[in-house]
Amino acid sequence: MESMLLKPEEVAECLNVGRSKVYELMRAGALESVQIGACRRVPRAAVTAYVESLRANLVAS
Results as ranks from 00 to 15, higher is better:
Arg19Asp: 07
Ile36Thr: 07
Glu9Asp: 12
Arg55Glu: 12
Arg40His: 09
Ala49Phe: 01
Glu13Thr: 03
Leu54Tyr: 02
Val11Lys: 09
Glu32Asn: 14
Met4Asp: 12
Leu6Met: 13
Ala56Cys: 00
Val51Glu: 01
Leu6Gly: 06
Glu24Ser: 05
Pro43Met: 06
Leu54Ile: 00
Ser33Lys: 15
Asn57Gly: 15
Leu6Ile: 11
Gln35Leu: 05
Gly18Phe: 00
Glu52Gly: 05
Leu25Asn: 12
Leu15Tyr: 09
Val47Gly: 01
Ala28Asn: 09
Leu58Thr: 04
Cys14Tyr: 08
Val42Gln: 04
Leu5Trp: 02
Ala12Arg: 07
Ser33Ile: 04
Val22His: 13
Leu31His: 04
Leu54Asp: 10
Val59Ala: 14
Tyr50Val: 07
Gly29Tyr: 09
Pro8Arg: 02
Arg27Phe: 06
Arg41Lys: 05
Arg55Ala: 13
Val17Tyr: 00
Arg27Tyr: 13
Ala30Glu: 14
Glu52His: 01
Val42His: 04
Glu10Gln: 03
Ser20Lys: 14
Ala12Gln: 07
Tyr50Cys: 03
Ala38Gln: 13
Val51Lys: 05
Ala38Ile: 11
Met26Gly: 02
Leu15Arg: 09
Ser33Thr: 15
Ala60Glu: 14
Lys21Tyr: 14
Glu52Tyr: 02
Ala46Asp: 05
Gly29Thr: 10
Arg27Thr: 11
Ala38Leu: 08
Val34Lys: 00
Val51Ala: 05
Ala46Val: 08
Glu10Tyr: 08
Ala46Leu: 03
Pro43Ile: 02
Val42Asn: 03
Lys7Ile: 11
Leu54Arg: 00
Gln35Asn: 13
Pro8Leu: 07
Ser61Arg: 15
Cys39Arg: 15
Val11His: 10
Tyr50Ser: 07
Glu24Val: 05
Tyr23Gly: 02
Glu32Gly: 08
Ala45Cys: 04
Met4Tyr: 09
Ser61Glu: 11
Val51His: 04
Val47Glu: 08
Val11Gly: 08
Cys39His: 14
Gln35Trp: 02
Ser53Met: 08
Cys14Ile: 10
Ser3Gln: 13
Gln35Ala: 11
Val59His: 15
Tyr23Val: 11
Leu15Ser: 00
Arg27Gln: 14
Cys39Gln: 15
Leu54Cys: 03
Leu54Glu: 06
Gln35Lys: 15
Cys14Arg: 12
Cys14Val: 06
Glu13Asp: 14
Leu25Cys: 10
Ser53Ala: 13
Leu54Gly: 10
Val22Pro: 14
Arg41Trp: 05
Lys21Asp: 11
Pro8Trp: 06
Val22Phe: 07
Pro43Gln: 09
Val11Asn: 02
Val17Cys: 12
Leu31Asn: 10
Met26Leu: 09
Val51Asp: 07
Ala56Pro: 01
Val59Trp: 14
Ala12Ser: 07
Ala46Pro: 08
Leu5Tyr: 05
Leu5Phe: 00
Glu10His: 05
Leu15Ala: 04
Met1Trp: 06
Ala38Val: 08
Gly29Met: 06
Lys7Pro: 06
Arg44Glu: 02
Met26Ser: 02
Ala60Ser: 12
Gly18Met: 03
Glu2Thr: 10
Ala38Phe: 03
Ala60Trp: 06
Ala45Asn: 13
Glu13Gln: 15
Gly18Asn: 02
Ala46Lys: 03
Ser20Thr: 11
Arg41Asn: 03
Leu15Lys: 07
Lys21Cys: 11
